[in-house]
Amino acid sequence: MTTSDMTADGTADEGPESRRLDGNAAAGPLRELFSVDIIAAACTCAHCGGTTALAEHVLYADAPALVLRCPSCTGVVLRYASAGGQARLDLTGARLLVLDLAHDGRPG
């Protein structure tokens, strides 16, 4: 996986502000690992205690790993990378994930 793998599309950088994406865009990569879509899960930030849907986190997809940051305190909540047949997931910054199983993964 290259650093630019998961940007919305490859473009010249104009500083970190313009590289911010929404957590939505991490849905595909995280489905490499999870059998359900966790992007709508409510996540409690281990840094500030705020609770927000992962989809509403700030995503930096062009770092060496995909990085989700808390929209309240900007602390790193989740890091994910896959390369060479290995997936790496760091959830140190996520104290709690709450998924609504009734709505998950079923054809609508």
Binding site: G28, R31, E32, L33, F34, S35, D37, A40, D100, H103, D104, G105, R106, P107, G108
Partner: peptide, 15 residues
């Protein structure tokens, strides 16, 4: 509210 999202080709598994 969330809607039920369409399942992938392999329902219930990794995509």
């Amino acid at each position: 509210p969330t809607v039920t999202t369409a399942g992938p080709a392999r329902r219930g598994g990794r995509l």
